[in-house]
């Protein structure tokens, strides 16, 4: 079963609600066929609104247009768009069994009984829930429910799969398992998928590209790697992962910070930059380093997270290897590489 991916284009899509709130500023966006595009942002940033525009649950303001391949679907309601949608709260029909839920879209499309059964069996197998076929919805766990919801959405061979925070209601371990499964599924099916989440780890893992949104606008679009390593602005840098701010002065080949100096190869002048916790290292003895005091140390298993003050104007978050014995009150010497710095425009 292969669903050829659909290319989606949005042009000038804005959304103003009846009460006058502007949920989305005019947006132009292209989603490549077969791509998984993740919308990431805090609540109220417009990511869900964008998804609902693509779904056909909301209509864009006057000038906006939405195209699936070359077909203009702007005026089509969701019933007519042939999209698959997975909801945070599952939206499974409690009055139907698991199989009944999966068959529902096929029934609406008047798919003949035999074909319908075959298709439901196929979906059940794909989601590895064949044994749940006759269960009622309230007998299922959250993870099972979301599997059923996925099967139901995919059964109708939609042109695009829309996932609205599908894992948010699940607990951490289950979230990770299902995330892996969704990832495998999307790659195998080659379907165009749009995924909305506020969880950056989920976005990184699943997205071919990520759209970071803030206050109804796109803050950055790019591959997960680019978004993490080259955030466009402070908001993106802050929202994705932890970030430390550095402000110091370069003078005569040395970077001067409150904790000391590091050899620095750049023209003289003030330096404003950001730095990820994992880019900071404990300096080897005898090599240059910046001295600071550990305020707190949390052992996290795979690493330990330190909060160090005195090195930079603000305390720094440092991810240190798990084997070094460090506790609050210790003095440490830190260093970092120039290419790990993230320049910040503002």
């Amino acid at each position: 079963m292969t669903t050829p991916g659909t290319r989606i284009r949005l042009t000038g899509c804005a959304k103003t609600f009846a009460d006058g709130t502007r949920a989305l500023e005019p947006l132009d966006l292209e989603v490549n066929a077969g791509e998984t595009l993740v919308f990431l942002g805090p609540s109220g940033c417009g990511k869900t609104t964008t998804l609902r525009l693509i779904a056909g649950l909301e209509m864009p303001d006057a000038c906006g247009r939405i195209l699936f391949d070359d077909e203009d679907v702007t005026a089509l309601p969701i019933e007519k768009r042939n999209v698959g949608m997975v909801f945070q709260s599952y939206a499974l029909f409690p009055n139907m069994s698991v199989a009944g839920n999966i068959a529902y879209g096929l029934k609406i499309r008047r798919v003949p009984e035999a074909e319908r059964r075959r298709r439901v069996a196929e979906m059940l197998e794909m989601m590895r829930i064949t044994e749940l076929a006759d269960r009622s919805i309230d007998q299922l766990s959250g993870g099972q429910r979301q599997r059923v919801a996925l099967a139901r959405a995919l059964a109708v061979e939609p042109r695009v799969l829309l996932l609205d925070e599908p894992l948010t209601a699940l607990d951490a371990k289950l979230r990770e398992d299902l995330r892996l499964e969704i990832d495998r599924l999307l790659r195998r099916l080659g379907i165009t998928a749009i995924y909305v989440t506020h969880d950056q780890a989920e976005a990184m893992a699943l997205g071919d590209r990520i759209v970071v949104m803030s206050k109804g606008k796109v803050a950055q679009i790019g591959r997960p790697r680019d978004i993490y390593l080259k955030p466009a602005d402070r908001f993106v840098a802050d929202f994705i992962g932890n970030i430390n701010r550095l402000s110091g002065m370069v003078r005569n080949g040395l970077l001067e910070l409150p904790g000391g100096t590091l050899p620095w190869d750049s023209p003289d002048g003030p330096l404003q930059a950001a730095l990820r916790p994992e880019s900071l290292r404990i300096a080897e003895d005898g090599l240059p380093g910046l001295t600071g005091t550990v305020i707190s140390a949390f052992f996290l298993g795979d690493r330990q997270r330190l909060l160090v003050e005195g090195v930079a104007p603000e305390p720094l978050i440092v991810d240190a290897p798990n084997r070094i014995e460090i506790s609050a009150g210790d003095t440490v010497r830190l260093t970092f590489d120039a290419d790990a710095l993230i320049p910040l425009s503002h």
Binding site: L57, I78, E79, A91, F93, I108, V156
Partner: peptide, 21 residues
């Protein structure tokens, strides 16, 4: 919305999903 995403028109939704629930 779930029913609509699967293509159900209003009569379908009303008699197939809303009334039974």
């Amino acid at each position: 919305e779930g029913a609509r995403s699967l293509g159900a028109s209003f009569p379908h939704r009303f008699f197939g999903v809303i009334l039974p629930n």
